[in-house]
């Protein structure tokens, strides 16, 4: 009985998030499609033509997985972060806090909304890439697993950011100063094999490397890292972030005085 009620609570929150994403689609779905189209034009078509192949793959095809992952990471993070902070700002997060919703239901409701937006934008970007290059599928399972785990991981991270944010500036600091550098240095545009040994070693501490390469392996069969290791890192990080979200909810950090 309780499980059924929790399911209804979850689907209500998820439905509300879906409505929000679709209602403001010019803000949620369109920007990434435009930005990443520009990447395809500039790095893939104009500059990429001069670069030639990367690890035996035309450069424009080589960057497709990374750009899709970039869209998934950014959108799943921003969706949850802005939604949680917006609900805190308007105080309507209290609608859920007074209701008999376990913490995990609230967290997963928001995260599901973020995952949906991340995946939708990922599909749009993949669709756009068809105008510039060719997409092949090497392993569907890897694509689905890496795509979903990455979206979930960054949605959890966005949830933490949203909980901690006290003003609007706080929800742009992490994406700007942490997420963007990690993504750009996460092997989206290059193989880490091209880096000197020191930077190669350092890059392996960047979690985005594992996501981009895991996804690239699923599409191209090419990877700089071990896929099982990448999936393990992703899964464990996701569990860790979820635990952190739950703990913050339990303590009321950022939402209760």
């Amino acid at each position: 009985m309780r499980l059924k009620k929790n399911w209804i609570s979850f689907t209500t929150l998820f439905y509300r998030e879906v409505v929000r994403v679709l209602r403001i689609w010019p803000q949620t779905l369109l920007p990434s499609a435009i930005t990443i189209s520009l990447y395809f034009v500039i790095f893939g078509d104009i500059i990429g033509a001069r670069i030639g192949d990367m690890k035996g793959v035309p450069y424009i095809n080589y960057i497709v997985p990374g750009l899709v992952m970039m869209a998934i990471i950014t959108n799943s993070y921003l969706n949850v972060c802005s939604s949680v902070f917006g609900n805190k700002f308007q105080k309507n997060i209290e609608e859920m806090l007074v209701a008999p919703m376990p913490h995990y239901v609230i967290i997963l409701g928001y995260v599901a909304g973020g995952v949906l937006r991340g995946v939708l934008v990922g599909i749009i970007v993949a669709g756009v890439s068809l105008f510039f290059g060719k997409i092949t599928v090497y392993n569907w399972w890897s694509i689905i697993a890496v795509g979903l785990l990455t979206a979930m991981l960054f949605a959890f991270a966005g949830y933490i950011n949203g909980m901690l944010a006290k003003k609007f500036d706080d929800i742009s600091i992490v994406p700007l100063f942490v997420l963007t550098p990690l993504t750009y240095l996460g092997g989206v545009f290059y193989s880490i094999d091209l880096l000197p040994p020191f930077w190669q070693g350092l890059s392996r501490f960047n979690p985005v490397i594992y996501m981009v390469n895991g996804f690239r392996w699923g599409l191209l069969g090419q990877s700089d890292v071990n896929i099982s290791f990448a999936l393990s890192i992703l899964f464990l990080s996701m569990v860790g972030f979820f635990a952190c979200c739950w703990w913050m909810m339990h303590k009321g950090i950022g939402i209760k005085s």
């Binding site: 059924k4 009620k5 609570s9 209500t12 509300r16 609608e95 209701a99």
Partner: peptide
């Protein structure tokens, strides 16, 4: 109506 109906959902009402 969405505000009220959603609140019902948060309380587990179909």
């Amino acid at each position: 109506k969405d505000i009220v109906i959603n609140q019902g959902g948060f309380y587990g009402l179909s």
